[in-house]
Amino acid sequence: MYLPNFEYFQPDSIEETCQLLSQFGSKAKLFAGGTDVIIKMKKELLSPEILVSIEKIDQLKKIEYVPGKGVVIGSGVTHNDLVYSELLHEKYLSISEAARQMANNQVRNLGTVGGNIGSAVPSADLPPILIALGATVKITGVKGDRTMDLEDVFIGPGKTVLAQDEIITEVVIPDQKMTGSNYIKFGLRASGALAVVGVAAAVQVENNAIKEARIVLGAVSPTPVRAKKAEEFLKDKKISDELLAGAGVIASGECVPITDIRASAEYRKDMVRVFTRRALRKAIDEGHA
């Protein structure tokens, strides 16, 4: 496999990044960790003439708590930054754990949060848990910023609402009323395997009942998808094994998986059933672990 020639820009600021992306239009591609872009270039699935790297923009590499806003994760934060973040260990271990299950150490050292979202790969591991926690994203372009719910960013495999000049700059996890959250990735080997099914659940538990739940399914639809009927089914119900199993059955009807070399659609649907129940149980029993 051969990496074709390209020009490489390494701007110092977000503003300059957006300007370069705007200036070069479709010839340019944003470059963060490169774990997706470089492979696609080698396979000739992408042929950008210009790569615009965010590597030098330090403000994108922070994970911090901003009172009144929530946990703010810069888009240039790597997966291993999430894995080792003390702030996340304290507030949302579930995000760290989701990151820890991704790919392998080499990829986790390079791959970024912004890239995991922006590549819009249906099996990406971070979007389900982030959406379950109600994350919003800040998107910056030459004309300024906009903020939207993360779940509205995805349009289809490899497609997002981002314009050519726009980049994701931060992901915000708002302060929660959810009492627990969890993401289960089901891959076909202990490490270095893409999710065949990924299920994230967040729950607000009060008096042994579910006040509210969010269930997000990965790798089983063109985009990460909310299992809204299952969420609705759980609302204001006493917690029981039967209840969670029921939610699993409903969730498995809320996805449209494909059959590919990793698994059949039939199997994926059944795994959504299994892992929805398990993710809910973990979120109920173990908080944001």
């Binding site: 392998n104 076909l188 080997r189 202990a190 490490s191 270095g192 395997a193 893409l194 070399i261 990793r262």
Partner: peptide
């Protein structure tokens, strides 16, 4: 090792051809 219906190799890489890792 997998092929498509035209005999083209589908998984000539260690992401989709899953050798065991140390964790396995």
């Amino acid at each position: 090792v997998m092929f498509d219906e035209k005999g083209k190799l589908l998984n000539g890489n260690y992401a989709e051809y899953r050798l065991p890792t140390a964790l396995d």
